[in-house]
Nucleic acid binder design. Sequence first.
DNA 1: TGAATGATCACG
DNA 2: GTGATCATTCAT
Length: 186
Amino acid sequence: MSRLPRNFYAQHTLEVATELLGKVLVVYRQGIRLSGEILEVEAYTGTDDPASHAFRGPTPRNQPMFSTPGHTYVYFTYGMHHCVNVVAHDNNGPGAVLIRAVRPLEGLDLMQTRRKNKPFSQLTNGPAKLCQAFQLDRQDTNIDLVTSDEIWIEDQGKRFLPEEMKATPRIGISTAMEKEWRFIVL
DNA sequence: TGAATGATCACG
DNA sequence: GTGATCATTCAT
């Protein structure tokens, strides 16, 4: 159960994205540990990526994407949903990896309550759904996953073979559909 | 297939 | 200040 170190996040955004599959997102609050195995991610970079929030340069919202690798970037969208990213880049940024789905491991009862008693298969199978289950919002943006005592990512030794993973176009975007920067576990 | 629902940002 | 857009979810 080792927490991912800074140098894990300080690699190319695409590299971090694929390596995050199988890692475990942990939120520890009020004595309760919530966790889930990451099964789906998307990479977003900068001026080479029109679909990225950082494409047109830094703004108050996307500022975490330009900061030190290993921070969170949580944004609010569609007037009702939150999504959580991991800041990752090997230069001075920007770059982040959107966590789109996890497999619940710990804290399923609390997750199910927060998800309005949806079946287990639908607790964390979407970027805004998992933020509901883990109760992540804008207060949780720009948190350092390397040093925080509330949010971090662990390597529990899980590895996927190349044939167990797949790259596809990203979901819900209107540009850069040719980039296959969504990575899923089959 | 479309409604919900409001922050964000480019523009001027 | 205004309007188009939005890295989504859910019910119809």
